[in-house]
Amino acid sequence: MILKMIKFDMVNIVRNPTLLFSNTAFPFILIAIMGFVTKNTFEGKTVSSYDYYGVNMTIFSAMLIAMTASNTFMEEKVKKGNIRMVYAPVSKASIYLSKLLSTYIFGTICYCTVLFLGQTLFHLNLGGRYLPYLMLLIDALVLFGCCFGTMFCCIFKNEEQANGIMQIPVAFFVFFGGVFFGVHRLGEAIHLISTFSPVYWVSECAFQLIYDHDFSLFLPVTLCLVLASIVCTAVCQIAFKPEGYV
């Protein structure tokens, strides 16, 4: 039953042009804009502006999958079509897990494709033969984003409210993650705060993988993202009430 629900939700996501655009073309647009605007800043450096923002804008976009998860779960058109699942003989976990897993599968396909095309078609330095490890790292971030977004939906039971409140921690993760500029320039205190952002660690791990072939952060960061995803899913199980979904 849950496989049918996942398939149904996947179709709904793919049919939504906004979600499709934001998880496929949008990262490339961000890379092109940020790379062009800052290219003079990176002149003479080992890392080009397009390589730098190729990594960071992919991470930024992958973190925003939390919004896609929220839309998949609580968007009014989808919600109306899925009300019958509340009254079907299925566990409450299968209702939110189908949304979470369908978004994760969709996000994994999208961002693996973005990374692959970025390296092969646009010649960004995304690790060369180490690209599969970068894909796994981004997949772990996508999983966390999906669980994080679903958790807020389960808690607040309303897409607008969930997105409104969720934007605060997501903005914190992104800003202190340093995806637009290095936050270490803002002082030691800000740098210390940035260590609480999962985006910061994913970015650090990604650049170590690509330029130093250093895997010291890969396993700890990936496991922490998976653990955080499990915690968010546990909160979903506690907070989700099928009657509140109607």
Rank of each mutant, 00 (worst) to 15 (best):
A189M: 15
L209P: 11
E204T: 15
H123W: 04
F172M: 09
H184P: 11
F207I: 08
C110R: 00
I210N: 06
S102Q: 04
F148A: 01
S194N: 13
L97V: 14
E159V: 03
P198R: 03
F152P: 01
V174R: 12
L101N: 06
S102Y: 06
L136E: 11
I168S: 08
E160Q: 07
L186K: 10
A171P: 12
A162P: 09
F152E: 00
F148Y: 07
L141P: 11
N163Q: 10
E159R: 10
I109K: 00
I193N: 10
Y87Q: 10
E159F: 03
L141W: 05
F148H: 01
V170T: 15
Q208A: 09
N125Q: 09
I165H: 00
G149A: 05
E188R: 15
G128I: 00
I109F: 14
S194K: 14
C153K: 02
L137W: 03
A93P: 10
I109Q: 00
G187E: 11
D212K: 15
F173K: 05
G177N: 10
L101G: 02
C112H: 04
G127M: 05
G149F: 04
Y96R: 01
H123K: 14
L143I: 02
V183E: 11
L126P: 00
C110T: 01
G177Y: 12
V174E: 12
L141S: 01
S98W: 02
S94C: 13
F173D: 06
C153H: 01
T113H: 08
T195M: 15
D139W: 11
A93I: 08
L131V: 01
G178D: 06
